[in-house]
Amino acid sequence: MEIRELQWFAALAEHEHVTLVSERLNISQPTLSRAIRRLEHRVGVPLFDRHQNRLRLNKYGEVFRAHALRAIAEIEAAEQRIATLVDPDSGTVALGFLHSYGTWLVPELLAEYRAIAPHTTFELRGDAADTVVDDVRHGRLDLGLTSPRPAGDELEWTPLRDEPLCLLVPAGHRLAERRRVRTAELAEESFVALRPVFGLRQIADRLCTAAGFIPRVTLESTELSTLRSLVAAGLGVAIVPITGSPVDRRGPVVAVPLSDPGAMRTVGMVAPASGSRSPVVRRFHDYVCSTAHAPYA
């Protein structure tokens, strides 16, 4: 059964006149008649009642027409979706990213990309690093912006830029007036931190381990904005990206840059290492990777 035969049947079911339909479809009457007979042979019953030169759709034809119209509509929808995917300018990219990137990196990249590909659409999803990586690995996301570098050979990782880290302390804290601070100086502090599944928490834990201590985490959260509020309330200090945390010694929270050589998180693009990418995904991936090592906002 061919889709064109279903389309011919649908036209004949609407007009019930072989001559008229064959002219409109620009096919011969015998070709149209043979196509209808093949359909009837396949379903095992006549779909039309014949009256000389006229046809009338019967009860079997009514049932078949309802399903044929749905099948035609589904095929046309599939063709449109595939055409969109093939077009590198008007397709859709499913992009995952860390929550904190949603406040600066993602808007920055999309605004720049919109200038060269205004018809590309995005499905955006902010989440923890492990979740973003897992969704890319299993095809639920096309690409991900995350940190740190994920493990596994099945993923392709492209580092984009390094984002310095700082220490958030409440105003009046013993370190609030410092220009820089070393992680080793924080061994006695109480920390508020993201949950362990977040990439930033993993980096902060490694910094503390390298400095010779295990951080005493008293409160955990899932959002950087909550950490800032907890620090402002005097409930602990936090290691966070300096992006969005300007050094302002007049507010309730002060950001003090960390001086450790490894006090940064590397922003990277993660993608499946194998398998085909649609043109729209490949174009956006290549564009983002071309921005590698640009200074952070």
Rank of each mutant, 00 (worst) to 15 (best):
E5H: 12
L6N: 06
L6W: 11
T19W: 02
L20Q: 08
V21F: 03
V21W: 02
L25T: 01
Q29D: 11
A35C: 06
I36N: 03
R38H: 13
E40M: 07
P46L: 13
L47T: 02
R50M: 07
R50Q: 13
N53T: 09
R54H: 08
L57I: 13
Y60W: 13
H67L: 13
A71M: 14
I72E: 11
I75K: 14
E79S: 11
Q80I: 09
R81V: 03
L85T: 06
V86W: 00
L95S: 09
G96P: 05
G96Q: 08
L98W: 08
L98G: 12
H99V: 04
H99G: 12
W104A: 12
V106C: 10
P107M: 07
L109S: 02
A111G: 04
H119M: 12
F122V: 04
G126S: 15
V132K: 02
V133Y: 01
L141A: 05
L141R: 06
D142S: 02
D153L: 15
D153T: 14
L155R: 05
L155F: 09
E156F: 14
D162G: 07
P164Y: 15
P164M: 15
L168Q: 06
A171T: 14
H173Y: 06
L175N: 08
V181R: 06
E185R: 12
L186C: 08
L186I: 07
E188C: 03
S190L: 13
A193S: 15
L194V: 09
R195S: 15
P196G: 14
F198M: 12
L207I: 04
T209L: 14
A210W: 03
I214N: 02
I214C: 07
I214H: 12
V217L: 01
L219F: 06
L219C: 00
T222G: 01
E223F: 03
L224K: 00
S225M: 04
R228V: 02
G236L: 04
I239D: 00
I239P: 00
I239A: 04
G251Q: 01
P252N: 07
V253Y: 00
V254I: 11
A255I: 11
V256S: 10
D260K: 02
D260I: 01
M264G: 01
G275V: 10
G275Y: 07
S276H: 11
P279S: 00
R282F: 06
R283K: 09
T291K: 14
H293V: 00
H293S: 01
